[in-house]
Simulated assay, not measured.
Amino acid sequence: MNALELFRTDLDYIQIADRLDIDVSEVERQIHRLRNIERGDTTHDDYYERRNAEEIRFRDKHRAYQREWSREKRARARA
């Protein structure tokens, strides 16, 4: 069962989170996402997909910066 189905069985967010072994905030997001899908409104899904893609690009840039910084630091230490 998904979060929305469990919610419709009169369980609250905390009980659903325990059953699905996820955070309460994730339960809330899933319920709202599934309700939007039922209504045919996917605007939020599009937003989250774009946001997640931006976060991944940022994370990758940050990791590349950290690697470069570490290389420069090691090079300075050897000199």
Rank of each mutant, 00 (worst) to 15 (best):
M1K: 10
M1P: 12
N2Y: 06
A3E: 06
A3D: 08
L4P: 05
E5T: 04
L6W: 05
F7Q: 05
F7N: 05
R8W: 02
D10W: 12
D10S: 14
D12H: 02
D12P: 05
Q15V: 00
Q15G: 14
Q15E: 06
I16T: 00
A17H: 03
A17Q: 02
D18V: 01
V24Y: 02
V24I: 01
V24D: 01
S25R: 05
S25I: 09
S25F: 12
E26F: 07
V27L: 03
V27D: 02
I31D: 01
I31E: 02
I31F: 01
H32R: 10
R33N: 06
L34V: 02
R35E: 15
N36E: 10
R39A: 08
D41K: 04
D41P: 03
D41W: 02
T43C: 03
T43R: 14
D46I: 10
D46C: 12
E49L: 11
E49C: 00
E49R: 09
E49W: 08
E49M: 04
R51D: 11
A53L: 09
I56A: 08
F58D: 02
R59C: 04
D60A: 14
D60W: 02
K61N: 14
K61Q: 15
K61M: 13
A64R: 15
A64I: 07
Q66A: 13
R67W: 04
R67Q: 15
R67Y: 08
E68T: 07
E68S: 05
E68G: 04
W69I: 13
S70T: 11
R71A: 14
R71E: 15
R71T: 09
E72C: 07
E72N: 12
K73I: 10
R74I: 11
A75L: 11
R76D: 15
A77H: 05
R78L: 15
A79G: 12
A79P: 01
